[in-house]
Design a protein around this nucleic acid. Structure first.
Length: 381
RNA sequence: GGGUAGGUAGCAGAGCGGUCAAAUGCAUCAGACUGUAAAUCUGACGCCCUACGGGCUACGGGGGUUCGAAUCCCUCCCUACCCA
């Protein structure tokens, strides 16, 4: 299901089989958290070259709700599921909602609490209480019909005390075991075989402690999954890239399975992680920052190249300096924005708050990411 | 011609004797954003300086009252609406 070779660049290239098709690794998936890549139509996403998306269990569970997701009608030969709902036929990965434990509960205690049973959330929509257990997280993902699933995990802030990190690793391991059991039960119940079942990933926690990352990874590997993720945050509280943690965690995961760096990252983070053995990435950066006016550009003299730390730069198109700049955002880019519009026009679209601004900028940034991934795979641009 | 309400920073609009270089919103200028509570959030926004402090000029113009005025009085100019 997964095979790789080491590329001349040091990272590895390979292919991952999913029931929705084969993915060349390394690859990047934009976040379609609530079953949409904000502001983009499926045709827009496809035009950037994106092949797989990440949706979110917690957010879809709350809205539109799992009962509706289960009733989505069959379309064009597809089973009724998230693919049909959002009109996306490529591979879908669903995140478990584990990160929402971190971003909602750990940062806002009033939003919920964690027990061994699961995570008790307060809905961000209406304040209602919801319990998401490991079993429930997996069952919901089967209802969503996604092709790659993630176990519910327990991420903690990197500056948490070590005892807390250790407890979170213990819990992540216990939850992974329960997720594994529920996953197998669901597969059996639905008569999935190895060709028709989704893939299951678990997530390595352990904060900034190499020994905890290793303990977590080894524990997860002994349970056995189709792939393993890097959880929590890959930078410290000052924003420094945690090289050793990324390297040692990758090393603790077998070579014959894909390694998924959840939530990573900036272009340079992705390049570094790939060199350390990571194969899959997802992040809100290209779309969120695009909507906020930040655009990724290849360094003009170098074109699409990954050499050096300055192979790309960013601009904030809303800055005054672009007011009368009638050149394309990035002359080396082949996206709709760079082919047809000028910097001055895009700045204008942002100033008048036209949704077209966010759309064109998101597409541009995704195109940048896609070309980055191609370069990492050693493919012709 | 008569009456009424007003004239405050780029705009709108608070303040109506000291704690006012002046609330708030918008606009403007920057910054942040890493498994999306984010079309969001943060900062700056009269001028000058040895800048978590100090100086200067300011609330239509001019003149007063007061220890002290954007705030009170006089006068002039202007605006809106109403009546002739």
């Amino acid at each position: 299901m997964f095979e790789t070779v080491i590329s001349p660049g040091g990272g590895r290239v390979g292919k991952l089989m999913t029931r929705k098709g084969e993915m060349q690794t390394p690859f990047f998936m934009p976040d379609a958290t609530r079953a949409s890549v904000r502001g983009l139509a499926v045709s827009d996403i496809q035009e950037t070259g994106v092949e797989a998306l990440v949706v979110n269990t917690y957010h879809l569970y709350l809205q539109p709700g799992i009962e509706l997701m289960k009733r989505i009608p069959v379309q064009a030969g597809s089973i009724g599921d998230t693919h049909a709902f959002m009109g996306w036929n490529g591979p879908l990965l669903s995140d478990s909602g584990g990160y929402q434990i971190y971003s909602l509960i750990h940062k806002h205690a009033e939003m919920g609490r964690i027990t061994d049973e699961g995570a008790e959330f307060r809905s961000v929509l209406d304040g209602s209480k919801h319990l998401i257990t490991p079993e429930r997280a997996i069952a919901i993902q089967f209802d969503l019909g996604t092709d790659m699933m993630v176990c519910l995990d327990d991420p903690r802030p990197n500056d948490a005390p070590k005892e807390e990190i250790e407890a979170a690793v213990d819990r992540t391991l216990r939850w992974a075991q329960r997720c594994r059991a529920e996953f197998d039960r669901q597969c059996e119940m639905r008569s999935f075989d190895d060709m028709t079942r989704p893939l299951l990933f678990s997530v390595v926690q352990g904060g900034m402690y190499v020994d905890e990352r290793q303990r977590c990874a080894h524990g997860l590997v002994s349970i056995g999954f189709d792939g393993y993720g890097f959880g929590g945050r890959h930078v410290d509280e000052e924003g420094n890239f945690l090289v050793d943690i990324l390297a040692e965690t990758a090393a603790a995961i077998p070579e014959n399975v894909p390694r998924f760096a959840l939530g990573i990252g900036t272009p340079s983070d992705i390049v570094r992680c790939h060199a350390l053995g990571w194969d899959m990435f997802d992040c809100v950066i290209p779309t969120r920052e695009g909507r906020h006016g930040r655009l990724f550009l290849w360094t003009p003299e170098k074109g699409v190249s990954l050499n050096g730390s300055d192979f790309y730069r960013t601009i904030n198109i809303q800055n005054e300096q672009f007011k009368e700049d009638f050149s394309p955002v990035d002359p080396t880019c082949d996206c709709e924005l760079c082919r047809q519009y000028t910097r001055a026009y895009l700045k204008h679209l942002f100033k008048v708050a036209d949704p077209l601004a966010g759309r064109l900028a998101s597409m541009h940034n995704l195109r940048f990411y896609m070309r980055l991934m191609k370069a990492l795979r050693g493919e012709e641009d």
